[in-house]
Simulated scan of single mutants.
Amino acid sequence: MSSQAVILAAGCVLWRRRPGTKEIELALVHRPKWADWSHPKGKLKRGETFMDAAIREVREETGMTCALGSRLPTARYLVESRPKEVRYWAAEAVGGAFTPSREVDRVVWLPPGTAWGRLTHERDKHLITALLGALRTTR
C-alpha cells in the first residue's frame, strides 16, 4: 500500500429474513457515480467510531436502521492511488424504508447467491461468505 494517509471507512453486509420464510436476503446499493453494486459503506467523519459510521452509512444509503452483529473481514484496496481500509459488520435490518438519492439511486434485496453475482467488485463477494458463516455460528 501507499505511504499516503489511509482513507478510513466502515460498512455492513445488511440482511433480513425474507418475509414468510427462514431464508435471508441481502441489501445491495447501486451508486450511480461509480455505476456499481456494493454493500453500504462510507468514510468516517471526524471523531466518529467505525461502528457508528457503519450504522450511519446503512441509514444514509438504504434508509434502514440496523442491529450490528459480528465483525466481518476488513477490505483494503487502493482508490485513485490512495490506500483505503473498510471495516465491515454483519447487520440485521430492523426497520426503515429506502428513498433514492444522488449517492444511491437503488437498493435491492437478494438471496445470497444472487447478491454474489450482482456485486461489481470481487473484494465484496467474500463478505457474503463471511456473513453466512457468522450467522451459522450465532444461531
Rank of each mutant, 00 (worst) to 15 (best):
T74W: 11
P100Y: 00
E25A: 02
V29C: 15
E103M: 08
R76E: 13
E48D: 06
T137D: 14
T120E: 01
E57T: 04
S70W: 02
S70N: 13
R102L: 09
I128C: 06
L8S: 11
G42M: 05
A97C: 09
P40A: 04
D124W: 04
A91C: 11
A75S: 14
S2W: 04
W89C: 02
R118S: 00
G42P: 13
P73M: 10
L72V: 08
P111R: 05
G96K: 11
C66L: 11
W116H: 13
E103D: 14
F50A: 12
R87S: 08
H30V: 02
D52M: 10
D105S: 11
V108H: 00
G133H: 08
A91F: 04
G96D: 05
K33G: 13
H39Q: 07
G96T: 04
A134I: 07
R136Q: 14
A27P: 00
I55S: 11
K33M: 14
L68I: 08
R16F: 03
D124H: 07
L119P: 01
R71I: 15
P111Q: 05
T129M: 15
D105T: 08
L28M: 11
E122L: 12
L132I: 03
A5T: 13
E61V: 03
C12M: 04
E60D: 12
W34G: 09
E61W: 03
G47C: 03
T62W: 05
A115D: 01
R139G: 10
C12P: 02
A53P: 00
K43N: 15
A115E: 01
L72N: 09
L68E: 12
R136Y: 06
A115Y: 04
R87D: 08
R102I: 04
S3N: 15
R102G: 14
L78T: 12
H121N: 01
P111C: 01
P111H: 01
V58F: 00
H126Y: 03
E85W: 06
L127D: 00
R71T: 14
L78M: 12
E61H: 10
R31C: 09
L26T: 06
A75Y: 01
C66R: 13
L131G: 02
L68F: 10
W37F: 06
L78I: 10
W116K: 13
E92G: 08
T49K: 12
H30R: 07
R139D: 12
L119A: 08
S3M: 14
E48V: 05
L78G: 08
H126A: 10
S2Q: 13
M64Q: 13
V107D: 04
G11F: 01
V94D: 12
G47T: 07
D124K: 08
A134V: 03
A75N: 12
R118N: 02
I7M: 08
E48F: 10
L72H: 09
D105E: 09
L72Q: 05
T74H: 11
K22Y: 12
Q4M: 11
S2H: 10
P100W: 01
R76S: 10
L127S: 04
V108L: 05
D105I: 01
